[in-house]
Design a binder for these strands. Structure first.
Lengths: 129, 129
DNA sequence: CTGCACGCTTCCCTCAAGGTAACCACCCAC
DNA sequence: GTGGGTGGTTACCTTGAGGGAAGCGTGCAG
């Protein structure tokens, strides 16, 4: 049982899933790897602010949880490629509604929900969940 | 703009939503209030291990984010009821696929995904996401 | 008069996630 | 030989979320 770091202590499925994606950078890693496989350095450059130590740690956790696949190439300079496993892809799919909700309710709160619309558009990369 | 405690710093909708539901007890609160409105003490008794201080803090954050509604009744002994706002209900709906994923991939990992099935059934409250 | 239930608030403390910076082995280009 | 790029590891430090326990104001029960 590789997945889950608090085995047996979950109250429900959402609770359990939160343990897998709870890291500060994990959903961003998920999204980046969904677009295409990435090398370690590519990920570091695409996640502004992440440190090498933390990126390595979160990738190892995601790998242990069966979410990402790590492939080492015997070349020089050494190359390592990270990609999503099938389970990782299903996780991304399951996160899509939450991404939609976040876009509608946090990034661009609608007046109908009692929020005041900002006078500028929220800067969103198109297609990003 | 009540929602979001890191305004302007989100990379995507999932990231933003994670800020709203990131608290240790928030998804459990969400689920409890989805079933029916709760009083403070009821919630405390239904979430084994939560302290009054933390429960009050997370409820106040969820209220500031427009997820839960707090209604104070002028009775004695004092009564306060918490319920989900419409926005809270949509959040719960958006969390359902994630709950399904967690149940299938963390609580009861399938052999097809490379995990070994436990020899006992996972104790799950039926219908709980 | 004492205790209890309610819904908190306040103070103090712990601990783990995350951040900082240095270092490693390897090889190539300059 | 020096610097850069590869993909990390190691040791140390900071910070903030969360936990423990006590107190508070009210009113009723015993």
């Amino acid at each position: 049982m590789a997945i889950g770091r608090r085995p047996g202590s979950y109250e429900c499925g959402v609770d359990a899933a939160m343990d897998v994606i709870g890291g500060k950078w994990k959903v961003l890693i998920l999204w980046a790897l969904h677009v295409r496989p990435h090398r370690f350095g590519e990920l570091r450059r695409e996640l502004p602010g992440v440190t090498e130590k933390v990126l390595a740690a979160q990738l190892r956790e995601l790998e242990a949880d069966g979410i990402v696949h790590r492939e080492e190439f015997d070349e020089v300079p050494p190359r390592v490629e990270y990609s999503l496993t099938p389970r990782g892809e299903t996780l991304n799919t399951a996160l899509e509604p939450l991404g939609e909700w976040g876009k509608r309710n946090v990034l661009a709160p609608s007046p109908a929900a009692g929020e005041v619309r900002e006078d500028h558009d929220v800067a969103l990369i198109p297609g990003r969940p």
